[in-house]
Design a protein around this nucleic acid. Structure first.
Length: 233
DNA sequence: GCGACAG
DNA sequence: ATCTTGTCGC
């Protein structure tokens, strides 16, 4: 966590947007990895109690076998509403709590949401990546901004997502006959690399294993998370 | 003013 | 995101 980039989280929407404008210049959209990508982390957030409690889940997978190596979960009081374009202010605080529990340092973070495919080029994946100065990618199930052509119905096919003349992401068909997903650079990752790594984590489902496993952990009922818990038969 | 709008 | 039952298709 770069201490010079830290900022308050409990801010008004206008200040949140100002913070995004200040951080956007730190985003890097070319590859800058420390070494080979051996581990991928899936990051996802869920809510409890009607939204009053935020739950952040991080699952680290072996990038080759996609087997889980570590899983952490953090819960904290929700303190920012959902505002389109300001998702990171609602979810990142809990995500940082979860990441702090991690024993290993994943080589790439795959976040549920946009990377730079955002009005101010600082979706949750880009924001998180910049704060940690770690490689990150945005994997979203739907579009926030941008326009694009139809995506060929072939596994792995993708078309660029544009905001005017600027290419801000990729619309990716992870499998046949399903809605495409929205992939964009977060930090320290080129778009082509982002797409490649996402497809590497896709098996037989629409979403990559990183987001699927993080999502199941983030939304699992509290009483079913403890190892050794079994339903009566 | 109106429509769009990650999770 | 969450709420919430059934239903269509492989």
């Amino acid at each position: 966590m770069d201490p010079t980039l830290q900022h308050a989280w409990n801010v008004a929407p206008a200040e949140a947007r100002a913070i995004q404008e200040r951080l956007r210049v730190r985003v890097e959209t070319v590859d800058r990895f420390d070494g080979p990508i051996r581990t991928l982390a899936g990051v996802d957030v869920g809510f409890e109690d009607g939204g009053t409690v935020t739950r952040a889940a991080v699952v680290v997978l072996d990038s080759t076998t996609l087997q889980p190596l570590e899983r952490v979960l953090a819960r904290r009081a929700t303190q920012f509403p959902y505002v389109p374009g300001l998702l990171s202010f609602r979810e990142i605080p809990a995500v940082l709590d979860a990441l702090a529990q991690l024993r290993m340092t994943p080589d790439l973070l795959l976040c549920d949401g946009q990377g730079i495919a955002h009005p101010r080029r600082l979706g949750i994946a880009a924001h998180l990546g910049v704060l940690l100065d770690r490689p990150s990618v945005g994997v979203a199930k739907s579009r926030l901004i941008g326009t694009h052509a139809d995506v060929p119905d072939r596994r792995g096919a993708w078309v660029p997502l544009h905001d005017g003349e600027e290419r801000i992401g990729a619309v990716l068909r992870t499998r046949l006959g399903v809605k495409p997903i929205y992939v964009s650079s977060g930090h320290r990752v080129a778009l082509e690399t982002a797409v490649e790594q996402v497809m590497r984590a896709v098996t037989r489902y629409r979403l990559p294993e990183t987001t699927r496993q993080a999502d199941s952990l983030a939304s699992a009922p509290a009483h079913a998370r403890r190892r050794g818990h079994h339903r009566r038969g």
